[in-house]
Design a protein around this nucleic acid. Structure first.
Length: 478
DNA sequence: AAAAAAT
């Protein structure tokens, strides 16, 4: 099957080809003909399956016929987050470059002026997050009665975020008959209900089982105490051939603190979470995409759908509360057939969440194989000032005492305490020692952002390895 | 328990 077999217009095919694609993904091959036939569609698909192009491509051809009118958009795409909306608009630009189509990106956190101006001039497609769309609608800036093609993307995520009432409100303002396409990774009952109410005899397609993890992603866990997570992470960032990594944490405060610590330690890291203003979110994402920053510390704002090329690693600094999010997070790597690695730091507080992840994915995540670390890399990354031999002796003799000595004396506010301890560890390493590592990461990131072990890395299987992790990290939860 | 989304 080739894109050329799908009955897309020559202009569109040219754009697809110049973007470097010749073969549609399974969801594209299934969905595109349905959209072309103007059928309603329920597509159950994970992100990273080529879902976006499966509606963007046929929409471009549909919208090529007909004319836009002021304030009356002809089609609407709803996205749960601003970043996803931006990404879809980039897709429209890429694939619509040979067409005279106008779009408006309606998201919060940015000035309304340009959005209103675009609406006044008339657009073919609106790409929006619900909040800003509702806002503009209530201000009388948009008429939705000419909008007879609707895409609800990431419907289950919209549900999680409490957008269903907004979506129902919007659907009621749209004309009938119209064509409605609904994309969702899962089909919880409220989404089913939404589909029954607003879709007409939809064709249902399903490409990958929900929560099935990509075989190109090698997954590992590191069981470790909460206070050693930072050390373990910094160590892994150096010894696991990390080119480009996204590091997820459960809390925005953790994201901030972690990025600070990593930068202090000389890593080129950035951060993204929902408390940052939109300009900063965009700027950080751009730095990461350009490679200027090769480590992005993120909240779950970045867990779903973001398609960034060449992410070699996903780290879960915390195990996500909701097991679905685990699948989404690790799906930021191993994209488009590339191999990726996903490493989750599991403290006792994370243990239950990890069990839920393993239940959901029906797979045991194997322990990280410390024996796979090359001795040179291990030596370079280990804390300075002690020989590796001495470290292993310490591990045998008195790991707990050592940990206790370093601990600040306050006992009553454990969260503060943990943070202070992290800072201390960072300060302990002499500045001079950190420089070479920085150089090394920079050059490798510029040359090739994809992981190097593409061929010899085995897919994840329940691991047999039960050996020790480096002495300074201790073993297991201790 | 968190995060996201309009101001």
């Amino acid at each position: 099957m080739k894109f050329a077999d799908l009955g897309l217009s020559p202009e569109l095919l040219q754009a697809v080809e110049s973007a470097g694609y010749t073969e549609p993904t399974p969801i594209q091959a299934e969905a595109i003909p349905q959209v072309q036939m103007m059928r309603d569609l329920i597509a159950i698909a994970q992100t990273g399956t080529g879902k976006t192009a499966s509606f963007v491509l046929p929409m471009i051809d549909i919208l090529a016929n007909g004319r836009r009118r002021a304030r009356m958009p002809r089609s609407l795409i709803l996205e749960p987050t601003r970043e996803l909306a931006m990404q879809v608009s980039e897709n429209f630009e890429k694939y619509g470059k040979n067409h005279d189509l106008k779009m408006a990106l309606l998201i919060g956190g940015v000035q309304m002026g340009d959005q209103v101006k675009a609406l006044d001039e008339g657009v073919d497609v609106l790409i929006a997050t619900p909040g800003r769309l509702m806002d503009l609608f209530e201000r009388g800036k948009i008429m939705l009665n000419g909008c007879d093609l609707l895409v609800i993307d990431e419907a289950d995520r919209m549900l999680d975020m409490g957008f269903i009432p907004d979506i129902e409100f919007i659907c009621e303002k749209l004309p009938t008959p119209r064509q409605t396409l609904l994309f969702s990774a899962t089909m919880p009952p409220p989404i089913k209900k939404l589909a029954d109410k607003f879709l007409d005899n939809p064709k249902r397609i399903e490409v990958a089982r929900a929560a099935s993890a990509n075989v190109n992603i090698a997954q590992f866990k590191v069981e470790i105490s909460a206070k050693k997570k930072l050390d373990a992470l910094k160590y892994l960032l150096q010894v696991d051939n990390v080119q480009t990594a996204m590091i997820f944490a459960n809390r925005k405060t953790t994201v901030r603190d972690l990025n600070k610590s990593l930068r202090k330690a000389g890593f080129r890291s950035g951060e993204i979470h929902g408390d940052m203003d939109q300009a900063n979110r965009i700027a950080e994402l751009d730095l990461f995409k350009s490679g200027e920053v090769n480590i992005l510390v993120c909240s779950d704002v970045a867990a779903r759908g973001l398609d960034i090329k060449g992410v070699s690693h996903v780290f879960n600094y915390d195990t996500p509360w909701h097991p679905d999010d685990y699948v989404h997070r690790i799906g930021r790597t191993g994209r488009a057939g590339a191999k990726g690695r996903a490493i989750t730091l599991v403290s006792p507080a994370d243990a239950e969440a990890m069990e839920n992840v393993e239940k959901l994915t029906q797979m045991k995540v194997p322990p990280f194989d410390w024996a796979s670390v090359s001795p040179e890399a291990a030596e370079e990354a280990a804390p300075k000032g002690r020989s590796s031999r001495r470290r292993s002796e310490e591990r045998e003799e008195a790991p707990r005492e050592e940990a206790r000595e370093e601990r600040p004396k306050r006992e009553r506010r454990p969260r503060r305490e943990e943070r202070e301890e992290q800072e201390e560890v960072v300060e302990a390493a002499p500045r001079r020692e950190r420089e070479p590592r920085r150089e090394r990461v920079e050059t490798s990131a510029r040359e090739d952002r994809r992981p190097r072990y593409a061929d010899n890395d085995p897919p994840t299987k329940p691991g047999e390895w039960n050996g020790p992790m480096p002495g300074f990290l201790g073993v297991g939860f201790n």
